[in-house]
Design a protein around this nucleic acid. Structure first.
Length: 548
RNA sequence: GGGCCCGUAGCUCAGCCAGGUAGAGCAGCGGGCUUUUAACCCGUUGGCCCCGGGUUCAAAUCCCGGCGGGCCCGCCA
């Protein structure tokens, strides 16, 4: 059984017994994110992809399910060094410390505010990484609507609430006169400094004193927030959440998740959702590994990933690994991730072909094939698509003309017989989808070893160093004699003929120079296809004119 | 102080949940491929499975206790 199927089984049990819901009720799944900065792909793991997959599995079992994603837009902007620096101007940045995220301006000035700016490369790609059926809500909206009653409930039950929450605030307990609401100061804009001192039930307002600017004022209970623990438990209640994964930072026994469960049961008198703790995703760059951090602006966004690889491949990496284990992403290994994905795909098709299902597979193979199935976003073709090597395409895109890139890549791979002459629509689509991504990948992440560019001209200095200049020149002449008979095969024959008299190590040295005069490096893509693509004009210029 | 993950071949890891003769990829070595890519094919070397104890006919796998590495929480969210 796949780990996520076990989660779903446990959840079904939880829904039926603890939450007392039946298949007639809608099951609610939730995730939560604070848009404190760069929204990296690590955040897709638990809050988006695991949740979405749990939802789909429930749907397959006949449940009606709704999935939310709550954005904590009312949270205070911490004004961490890295956040301040994103404004470029330190004095400008510092002004917004303590403001609700939603009110902090966009440092790059291209969006309405901070949240919208940093949300774009993540939120804008949600439907590319999932089936798109996720409703995004912000706490800012919720305080104006569904959370309003619970703010009142919290104020009414403040004594019970205070006693419960103070269990977790040992040295910093709330005092007796505490009012559980954190208003935004009308004067200085901070949400983390104004202390509520009196509640007016008739107008649903609180009076407060700001500990930052000293301002004393009155404001609506829609204009602020609850303490984070109370807020989380409140959201569970008003959205009636049944399942919500949480990052490992909340997972400590007696920690945030536990304290919110306590509040939920003992103060709000409601059953908390079933949880699922998950590890964070880290990134490996130049062999060094680090956690991606939102407010540290470290990491790659869903947009970044989408530019170089299929979302399905990332889904595969996340769904394969047990949530308590760390996933390490290394962007230079994208071609390897594709290979792994292809292996899972082959397993899937083999099983379907021989058994008609995955269940007959041995457990370990079942999990891999199942992970593949769960990773897929579009209907899986009945026949196995071709599995073009990402690396091969990455080399091909550097050779062919960039207009109609995919067409040229297909042509290239066909003439090298790397792919079949006849392509089915989904084969063509796969190559096309990889071609432009591989192009981006080569530019952004590929190691220098596989990156190359044609030399625009041959320098005199380089020319003077050549030991096989005459032979290279002869190779050029022989190649040009091919005329109409210009093909990978005939080119290869010419090269064999020209180098026939050489010993092995001489051949090696010759080919080094061959690459040097073309791309300035001692090695490069397969020689014959390279020449074929470059064409006779290039050969004439580089091998004849430049070398003469 | 509390909790989580990891420790298996030179490297990266699978196998552990449901105990039954130690696996893969890469690297190495040998061979092949009329020419190279982080290429392909065939073969092959290599391991007190971190240590100690327990359960068992049988332990990499289950239990207990250590050691080593990484991470989280300790009242911000």
């Amino acid at each position: 059984m796949h780990w996520i199927e076990k989660v779903v089984e446990e959840l079904e049990n939880y829904i039926a017994t603890t939450k007392n819901k039946t298949k007639q009720d809608t099951i609610i799944i939730n995730g939560g994110l604070s848009v404190s900065g760069l929204q990296h792909i690590g955040r897709l793991r638990g809050e988006i992809i695991i949740s979405e997959t749990v939802r789909k599995l429930l749907e397959r079992k006949g449940y009606r399910v709704k999935q939310y994603l709550v954005l904590y837009t009312q949270d205070a902007w911490k004004g961490k060094e890295s956040q301040v620096m994103s404004f470029g101007d330190e004095r400008e940045g510092r002004k917004y410390a303590g403001w609700p995220l939603i009110r902090v301006p966009d440092p790059k000035k291209c969006h309405a505010n901070w949240v919208e700016h940093y949300w774009e490369d993540f939120g804008g790609y949600l439907d590319k990484f999932t089936d798109g059926k996720i409703e995004v809500v912000t706490t800012t909206e919720l305080y104006k609507t569904k959370l309003k009653d619970i703010v009142k409930e919290a104020i009414n039950k403040k004594e019970k609430l205070r006693i419960t929450i103070n269990k977790y605030r040992g040295r910093n307990p709330y005092p007796e006169e505490w009012i559980p609401f954190e208003p935004i100061c009308d004067k200085c804009g901070r949400i983390d400094k104004a202390k509520a001192i009196k509640y007016y039930p008739d107008t649903e307002e609180v009076e407060y004193i700001c500990e930052n600017c000293g301002h004393r004022g009155k404001t609506s209970i829609a204009n602020g927030k609850l303490n984070w623990r109370i807020e989380w438990a409140s959201i569970w209640k008003v959205l009636n959440i049944d399942f919500e994964p949480f990052g490992k930072d909340h997972a400590t026994p007696g920690g945030s998740r536990d304290s919110c469960v306590d509040l939920s049961i003992n103060v709000f008198e409601t059953k908390p959702p079933m949880g699922l703790a998950y590890e964070w995703v880290s990134l490996r760059v130049n062999g060094k590994e680090f956690d991606m951090g939102s407010s540290d602006f470290l990491g790659i966004t869903p947009k970044d990933w989408y530019q170089v690889a299929h979302p399905e491949v990332l889904r595969y990496l996340y769904l394969k690994e047990h949530p308590r284990r760390k996933v390490v992403i290394d962007m230079t290994l994208i071609p390897n991730y594709y290979e792994e994905f292809y292996r899972a795909e082959s397993l899937y098709y083999d099983a379907m072909k021989t058994h008609g299902n995955l269940e007959s597979l041995p457990e370990n193979e079942y999990e891999i094939a199942k992970t593949y199935e769960l990773s897929m976003l579009e209907p899986i073709p009945s026949e196995k698509p071709i599995q073009p090597s990402y690396l091969t395409i990455a080399l091909a895109v550097q050779l062919v003309p960039t207009d109609n890139l995919a067409e040229n890549v297909v042509k290239r791979l066909k003439s090298s017989r790397i792919i079949p002459q006849e392509l089915r629509p989904f084969d063509k689509k796969r190559i096309t989808d990889i071609a432009w991504r591989a192009k981006n990948w080569v530019e952004k992440y590929a190691s220098p070893q596989i990156r190359f560019t044609l030399l625009q001209q041959l320098s005199e200095e380089l020319k003077a160093k050549l030991m096989y200049r005459d032979l290279l020149l002869r190779l050029g002449e022989e190649l040009l004699k091919l005329g109409e008979n210009w093909s990978e095969e005939s080119i290869k024959d010419v090269m064999i003929k020209v180098t026939q008299g050489l010993k092995d190590d001489e051949k090696k040295a010759f080919y080094k120079e061959f690459y040097i005069i073309i791309i300035g490096k001692e090695f490069g893509p397969r020689a014959a296809p390279l020449i074929e693509i470059l064409g006779q004009d290039f050969v004439k210029k580089r091998f004849i004119e430049d070398l003469s």
